[in-house]
């Protein structure tokens, strides 16, 4: 058997693939965070809770309205996005222009409320959500058994990440958004409804979290804790990628997913901290992040 640094090559390929799958979630979530930070200057700590809300909405939809997985992929992001609009209009708007710390604390509080409510209603051991029948089973790739659903996660996440990047960087709407971040007063003077743009951006970023939640539901137990497990890692990804950098968030998400996967082969106990070590090093060497524009 071929080995690389004493690890069988087959195991290594397997872990790289697993890393890509986990990276898909990191990328989707950190992308939403980056979009929101870039345009609203809000550190959206509620992102993990909204991801959890996405998974729970999918589960509730199935349980009470017979909403199947494919419908949930479309409906849930809209529901979570609408919830985001409520948050933005009722709360975030009132603190715009203040130090980002206020936004962070506000969304942190929201997280505690949302997670607490779901823990109260559904307990911490969570609810099971079966994968759609079309995506059950798996294929043997020779070096590993790949569940079909996990393959789908990578594809879906790449498509959605690319589409989001395209909208922001390559379309007229995206151009307005970017201009509004640079100079809201000027953009307003051109007759563009900046407050509406901001609301929609927040809704869009949050909808991405909801989408990731639906993707995650069949893999992980749908539990009130699922978001808090992930949010810290995702924040690290955003910092490494460069706060507010769209492309940085996507690429770093996948990269760190793979790095974490590799650590699980070579030295599993370090797998929980490797991302933060990278974050610390990046902050020391390139404080603006790998893809960030330095001030």
């Amino acid at each position: 058997m071929t080995t690389i640094f004493g690890v069988p090559a087959a195991a290594l390929y397997g872990q790289i693939l697993i890393g890509l799958i986990n990276g898909s979630f990191y990328a989707l979530l950190s992308l939403g965070l980056a979009v929101i930070f870039g345009l609203l200057n809000v550190i959206n700590f509620a992102h993990g809770a909204l991801y959890m809300l996405g998974a729970f909405t999918a589960w509730l939809g199935l349980q009470y309205f017979g909403l199947n997985y494919w419908a949930a992929l479309v409906v849930v992001p809209i529901v979570v996005g609408l919830f985001g609009i409520v948050i933005e209009r009722l709360a975030l708007r009132r603190i715009s222009g203040l130090d980002p710390l206020y936004g962070l604390l506000l969304t942190f509080g929201l997280t505690l409320v949302i997670e607490g409510l779901f823990r109260y209603w559904y307990g911490s051991s969570g609810q099971p959500y079966a994968p759609p029948p079309q995506l059950t089973g798996g294929v043997n790739l020779g070096f590993m058994f790949l569940p079909i659903y996990r393959g789908w996660v990578v594809i879906a996440s790449v498509i959605v990440c690319f589409a989001t990047w395209y909208v922001i960087e390559r379309t007229r709407l995206g151009a307005y958004l970017r201009a509004a971040t640079e100079n809201p007063a000027l953009v307003k003077a051109f007759g563009i409804n900046v407050p509406l743009l901001i609301t929609l951006t927040y809704a869009g970023g949050v909808a991405l979290a909801g989408f990731a939640g639906v993707l995650a539901a069949p893999i992980y137990q749908v539990s009130p804790l699922m978001g808090s497990n992930l949010i810290i890692v995702v924040f690290a990804v955003v910092v490494v990628g460069g706060m507010g950098s769209i492309l940085g968030a996507i690429v770093t998400g996948y990269l760190l997913g793979v790095l974490e996967g590799l650590t699980k082969v070579f030295y599993p106990p370090a797998s929980a901290i490797v991302i933060f070590v990278v974050m610390a090093v990046v902050l020391l060497v390139r404080p603006a992040g790998l893809f960030g524009r330095g001030d």
């Binding site: 872990q15 697993i18 051991s125 996990r150 539990s223 804790l225 497990n229 996967g261 699980k264 929980a272």
Partner: peptide, 28 residues
């Protein structure tokens, strides 16, 4: 503790070809 994704560890368990995979963990 409080791990979400077990796929890497499960792959290693699978590769070991042990007849029993013992889960020495609890809760979620």
């Amino acid at each position: 503790l409080n791990n979400n994704d077990f796929s890497s560890f499960l792959l290693q368990a699978q590769a070991s070809q042990a007849k029993v995979v013992g889960l020495a963990n609890a809760g979620l």
